[in-house]
Design a protein around this nucleic acid. Sequence first.
DNA 1: ATATAACATGAGACATGATTCATGTTTCAT
DNA 2: ATGAAACATGAATCATGTCTCATGTTATAT
Lengths: 212, 212
Amino acid sequence: MNREIGNNRTENKNRVKSLQAKTDRGEATRQKLLTAAEEIFGTKGFHRASIVEITLKAGVAQGTFYLYFQSKDKIFEELVRELNHSLRCEISHAVSEVKSRQEAEEIGFGVFFAFIKEHRNLYRIVQEIQFVNEDLYKWYYTQFAEGYIEGLEKAMAAGEFRYLDPETVAYAFIGVAEFLGMRWVLWEKEDVPPKTLNTALKLIMEGVLPRK
Amino acid sequence: MNREIGNNRTENKNRVKSLQAKTDRGEATRQKLLTAAEEIFGTKGFHRASIVEITLKAGVAQGTFYLYFQSKDKIFEELVRELNHSLRCEISHAVSEVKSRQEAEEIGFGVFFAFIKEHRNLYRIVQEIQFVNEDLYKWYYTQFAEGYIEGLEKAMAAGEFRYLDPETVAYAFIGVAEFLGMRWVLWEKEDVPPKTLNTALKLIMEGVLPRK
DNA sequence: ATATAACATGAGACATGATTCATGTTTCAT
DNA sequence: ATGAAACATGAATCATGTCTCATGTTATAT
C-alpha cells in the first residue's frame, strides 16, 4: 500500500482534518453520532442541543465527536443536505412513472407527508437553518423549487396546467405542503387525514371558486 | 415609613417583580428596549441575540433590562404577541368593508406582504418561536387560522366559495402567503411583484387546471 | 430643602457549552 | 509478536451570556 507520506505537505495546508472514517469501526461510530444528532437537533433545536448530549446519546466521549465532524455547525449542515437529498430522491422516484402531472402532484404530496412523518425530527431542523446558516436555508428551498419549476413548465407547455408563473406556483405549492405538514404531522403527530389531502389537492387544482 | 421587614414574607412569595413602568421616563426606557430587541432578535435570531447587545442598542445598562422584563424569554414572547396582534388588526381592518370574499383575499394577501416588508425583523422572529416556546408558536398560527376559518365558512355558506374543509384551506392559504413572503420580501428584500401576487390569487381562486 | 419612590448602573456571580489535547486502547499488516 | 495508524477518552481550556446586587442618580410631593 503506497502511502506517499513523505511529500505530504498538504497535510496542514488544507485545514480539513481527516474526518472521514477509514475503517468500518470508524464509520459505525460516525453513523452513531449522526443518528444521535438527528434526534437531539430535531427535538431540542440547534442551539439548545449540545455536543455533550449528542455524544452521550451516541455512547461515545466528547472528543470522539471531533474525530468525525469539524464542528457543531458542520454536522448540522451535513444532516440538512442529507435530508434534502433523500426527500427529493423519494419524491422523484415515486413520481417517475406517473401518467399525468396531476397524478404527480397527488403522489408528491403524499410522499412528502409520509416522509416528514418518518423524519419529524429532521423536518423541524429545516425550520431553524436560517438562523444557523442562511445560505444553506435558501439552498434547501431552492433545490426543491428548481425541480418543481421544471415539472410545472412541462405540464404547462403540454396544456395539462394552464400557464401561471411557475416559480410562484412552485413556492405556493411548497408552502401549502409545509403548512399542512406542520398542522397535522407535526402538531398532531398523525398522518395528514385523507380529507385534508383531498381538500388540498382539489384546492390547488381547481381553486376555491365554484366551477360553473 | 413602616417597612414591615420582619414579617415580610410576601416579598418572595409572588415572584412577579414590578416590571410595569410607573412614569413616562420608565415607559420610554421600556420602549427603547422593545425596539432594540425587535431589531436584534430579528437580525440574529433568538439564541444569537444577547441581552448585552439589546441594552447596548437601547443605550441603557444591562441591569436596566431586568427592571422591565423578567427574562430574555419574556421579552421575546411580548414581541411575538404584539406582532401577532398588530398584523391581525391591520388585516381585519383593511378587509372590514370589502364587497366579496374574493376581494377580501386579495386585500388580505396584499396587506400581509406590506406588513412583513415593514416588519421583516419580526417576521423572521416568528419562524424561531417553535424552538423557544412551542405553545406560543402554535398559538401564533392558531390565532390566524381561527379568524380565517370563520371568514371562509361564511363565504362557503354564501356560495361565494365552494365547500372545502375550511381548516385545510386556511392553513394552505397561510402557507402560500408565508412562502411567497419568504421568497420575495425576505430573500429579495423587495415587494412581492404584482405578477406574483396575481398568480397567487389566480391559483387559490381557480387552481392550476385549465378551465374549460 | 429634603425624603422617597422610581429609575439606572455595571461589575461580577454563576452557569453552560464548544472545542482542544495529552493520553490511552484497538486493530492489523508484516 | 510488534509497530503504527486509527480510534477513543474526558478533563481542562476558553468563551460567552444570563441574571443579580450593592450602589448611585433623578424627579417630585410635601
